[in-house]
C-alpha cells in the first residue's frame, strides 16, 4: 500500500464532510460511497463528520411521538392480516412493559369488542421442544396441547429471509420428514397437527428448513435445515 499516489487527505476530509451534509450531486455521492466501501480510512473520515454533525441535534428536546406511530410501524413491518389476530396486527403481540398505558388505551378504544390477546402457550403441554440453530440465530420453542391437537410455537430469535418461509418438519424414527406447515409470520402462533401425525410426536424430532415463500412446493425439504430439536414429554 506504499506505492501509488497517496490520496489527498485534506481533499477527502472536505469531501467526506460534503457527503455527510448531502451537498454532493447524486453522481458524486455514489462515487464517494463506492470509494468508501474499499477504503476504511475514508469511512473513518465520514464517521467523524457524522458523529460531529449529529451532535448538532444534542439540544433538540425529546418529543414523544403519538402512540399510533408505533402501531403503524409494527403494522407495516409485521402485518399479515389474513393470518393474524387483531392484537398482533396492531403490534400488541409482543408489547412489553415499556409501552405507555396511553398507547394500550388508544388501541383498545379503537378496537372495542375486537380485542383479543393472541396465541398463548398451553397451560399443560404434553410435549415441548426447543428447536434451535447451532449458532443461535434461530430459536423456536414449541409446546403441544394434546387436547386441541395444537402445537404452540414461539420464535424469540430469528426470522425467515426476505421472500422466504420457515417450514416445520416432524421426523419420526426412520421415516422421511413430514411437513407440519409453514411457521406463522407472527412470533407466536398455533399450528394444528393433523390427527394421524399426533401419535408420532412422542420421541420425534422437529426441524426447521428455509423454503420458498409459502413452503416447500414438493412436500420434502428443499432448502437448508436451519434448526433441530427433540420432542420431550413434560
Amino acid at each position: 500500500m506504499t506505492d501509488g499516489p497517496q490520496p489527498d487527505r485534506d481533499e477527502d476530509r472536505v469531501l467526506a464532510g460534503e457527503y455527510a451534509l448531502g451537498l454532493l450531486t447524486p453522481e458524486e455521492a455514489a462515487a464517494f460511497e463506492e470509494r468508501m466501501a474499499q477504503d476504511p480510512e475514508l469511512r473513518a473520515l465520514y464517521a467523524a463528520w457524522a458523529e460531529d454533525f449529529a451532535a448538532l441535534t444534542d439540544d433538540f428536546p425529546e418529543i414523544a411521538p403519538p402512540a399510533r406511530a408505533r402501531a403503524r410501524i409494527m403494522q407495516q413491518l409485521f402485518d399479515k392480516p389474513e393470518q393474524r389476530s387483531v392484537a398482533q396486527r396492531l403490534g400488541l403481540g409482543w408489547i412489553s412493559g415499556g409501552l405507555a398505558a396511553a398507547a394500550v388505551a388508544a388501541v383498545i378504544a379503537l378496537n372495542a369488542g375486537l380485542f383479543d390477546v393472541g396465541p398463548r402457550a398451553p397451560l399443560e403441554p404434553e410435549y415441548v421442544a426447543q428447536i434451535a440453530a447451532e449458532d443461535g440465530t434461530l430459536i423456536v420453542q414449541a409446546a403441544y396441547d394434546a387436547e386441541r391437537g395444537a402445537l404452540y410455537v414461539d420464535r424469540p430469535v430469528g426470522a425467515p429471509a426476505p421472500g422466504r418461509s420457515l417450514e416445520l418438519w416432524l421426523i419420526a424414527g426412520e421415516e422421511p420428514a413430514i411437513s407440519l406447515g409453514v411457521l406463522p409470520d407472527a412470533q407466536k402462533g398455533n399450528m394444528i397437527v393433523p390427527t394421524e401425525l399426533r401419535p408420532k410426536l412422542a420421541g420425534g424430532v422437529l426441524a426447521i428448513s428455509d423454503e420458498p415463500e409459502g413452503g416447500s412446493p414438493t412436500g420434502v425439504a428443499t432448502g437448508a435445515v436451519l434448526a433441530v430439536g427433540n420432542v420431550t414429554p413434560v
Binding site: 403490534g91 403481540g93 409482543w94 415499556g98 409501552l99 424469540p156 430469535v157 430469528g158 426470522a159 412470533q187
Partner: peptide, 10 residues
C-alpha cells in the same frame, strides 16, 4: 438484526 421483535420494540 437477528429478527428479534421484542428488542426492536425496546
Amino acid at each position: 438484526a437477528t429478527g428479534d421483535r421484542e428488542a426492536f420494540g425496546r
